[in-house]
């Protein structure tokens, strides 16, 4: 129980710090508080000034923090200047799309990564080992944005890119873990006693790898969410990744703060959950 409370407190603290650090960066970024409309030749001097006043900093960074915190305590997430909609509504509209993308990407990425890792360990073939390793390396060294552009050109669903980002990490970690476990004394002893390979693999090799794989699962959730930003922006998918991209370009402070906090929360919760589950599995 105390572990859970500690995890929750740590998550809350990190999320608050992440949100406010994000806000500070946006506030200090060049071009913050500037409206494109200022260049409209129809506007007279009074209107240009009014526009500047409307976009000018409203108080110091600290007063902004305080205002956002007060509003959030009342359940108000603020208003997006760029999208002209309440942030809460934007998140509610777009979060399911990102969840679908991330869910699909994680499932496919894990399925491919683990399958290739098992194939690589069990096949005992240099060709398979090299082939799977090359495939994973290729996916690992190709930027997500390039993969997203390829998806656009090939009219393929952008969610594949998230899977392509996840699988090499799962593959490499899973393969190394399975190889390490396969060399443990009791596994070698089971082989010596003539137990079937499948049985040894499922009963002795995989269960030992489970806690560590759960820890990787937490990390991959964070990776999937951060990958969703360029993927949704380039593949024109209306999720929170696309929203974050547009908010960054428009220096939309209130929206960016909330999005930063959401991504931080998801990453931390996933990591903490994986950590707790890993610990529980290890105890068994």
């Amino acid at each position: 129980m105390s572990t859970l409370v500690k995890c929750a407190a740590r998550t809350l603290l990190v999320v608050i710090i992440a949100g406010f650090l994000g806000a500070t960066l946006v506030r200090l970024a060049p071009g913050y508080g500037v409206a494109e409309e200022e260049l409209d030749a129809r506007l007279n001097a009074d209107s240009v000034q009014a526009l500047r006043d409307a976009h000018r900093d409203r108080g110091t960074i600290f007063s902004f923090y305080l205002r956002v915190a007060q509003r959030m305590l009342h359940g108000d997430l603020g208003f997006s200047d760029a999208m002209q909609e309440p942030v809460r509504q934007l998140i509610a509209e777009r979060f399911p799309e990102t969840l679908k993308s991330v869910g699909f990407g994680l499932s496919l990425g894990w399925a491919i990564g683990l399958s290739l890792a098992i194939l690589s360990v069990t096949a005992r073939s240099a060709a398979v080992d090299v082939g799977t390793g090359l495939l994973a390396t290729l996916a690992l060294c190709t930027p997500a944005a390039v993969l997203a552009l390829l998806c656009v050109l090939a009219q393929a669903p952008g969610r594949i890119v998230i899977a392509a980002t996840i699988f090499p990490k799962v593959f490499q970690y899973g393969r190394n873990l399975l190889l390490k476990n396969a060399a443990l004394p009791h596994v070698l002893s089971a082989h010596a006693r003539g137990l079937g390979r499948s049985r040894i693999f499922l009963r002795h090799t995989v269960p030992l790898a489970a806690p560590q794989l759960l820890a990787v699962a937490g990390v991959t959730v964070g990776i999937a969410f951060t990958t969703a930003i360029p993927v949704e922006a380039l593949c024109d998918m209306p999720g929170i990744g696309q929203l974050a991209w547009k908010a960054a370009l428009a220096r939309d402070l209130e929206l960016l703060v909330i999005l930063t906090m959401i991504v931080a929360t998801v990453t931390l919760v996933a990591n903490s959950t994986a950590e707790l589950l890993g610990k529980a599995a290890a105890h068994r």
Binding site: P30, G31, Y32, V34, A35, E36, E38, L39, L249, A250, R251
Partner: peptide, 13 residues
């Protein structure tokens, strides 16, 4: 090359 808000900041502020 600058993104538009940064450019506007330079030419107007």
């Amino acid at each position: 090359t600058l993104d538009f808000p940064s450019l506007i900041e330079r030419i107007t502020r």
